[in-house]
Write a protein that binds this DNA or RNA. Structure first.
Lengths: 123, 123
DNA sequence: TTATCATTTCGTCAGTTGGCGAAATATAGA
DNA sequence: TCTATATTTCGCCAACTGACGAAATGATAA
């Protein structure tokens, strides 16, 4: 039941569901998630780590960037059931439409440019 | 996403998972759940109501007793996926074994006797 | 090496949650 | 009607959570 609880708790937060839904089509690096969610880097990092602990998300490091994607559907059956639930629940809320639009913009950008945009503004 | 979130939040608590797992084979009345969980009636009532709000549990009233059971698998697909996840995650934890034993004892009892046992002890 | 920078870790804080007991509610039985 | 009682509602409190910023980490580039 502990594994189950770790998974259900990981799913029980809107930010984390938004992260999972954003990764449906492609992997995303942390800075892309930061841009999508408009949250502090430390917050995004923490939430992604909760999804990783639950086995829902896998990450690979490439230089300074960390790319995240949904865990394989062929791995842990618990994870597959969890994603089935999330995908079933993906509906037409305003928030999801907004995230979809924002994600398209982010994907059309060079990640380099995105990161530069996120650097502390020298005033 | 709101419906999904209501479901995932309902699943994200050990007490509520225990309730769902206990109802796998048969409906249970609140006082049976109180005995199983060893929690205050107000607490059990609250947790069941969260499961009902999420659509995971249905209840029927029979006199003073309220009987609860898992929602139909043929209803909301979200609910079905949620229960698939829970059942997949039902494992062999010590807690589950203990709950199984306790549940068997409870089911072998007359609910009337169970309720009498729960009444405030007149010292 | 040194500087830069994407990400993570840590400490803090406001808001939420899950537990309890007391009081309220609704129903059965006297 | 009045009493007993199974359940719910309400208010409270300790523990947990999700957000942030500052500092630490690890890797690239100068």
């Amino acid at each position: 039941m502990n594994d189950l609880l770790r998974v259900t708790r990981a799913l029980a937060d809107e930010t984390r569901l938004r992260i999972l839904l954003a990764m449906r089509q492609q992997e995303l690096c942390i800075c892309q998630l930061i841009e999508l969610l408009q949250l502090a880097p430390s917050t995004v990092s923490k939430q992604v780590s909760i999804l990783r602990e639950a086995g829902l998300v896998q990450a690979r490091k490439d230089g300074r960037w960390v790319y995240c994607r949904l865990a394989s559907r062929r791995g842990n059956p618990l994870v597959r059931r969890a994603m089935d639930l999330v995908l079933e629940g993906a509906g037409e809320s305003l928030r999801q439409a907004q995230d979809g639009d924002a994600l398209n913009k982010i994907l059309s950008m060079d990640p380099e440019v995105l990161c530069r945009k996120q650097r502390p503004q020298s005033v």
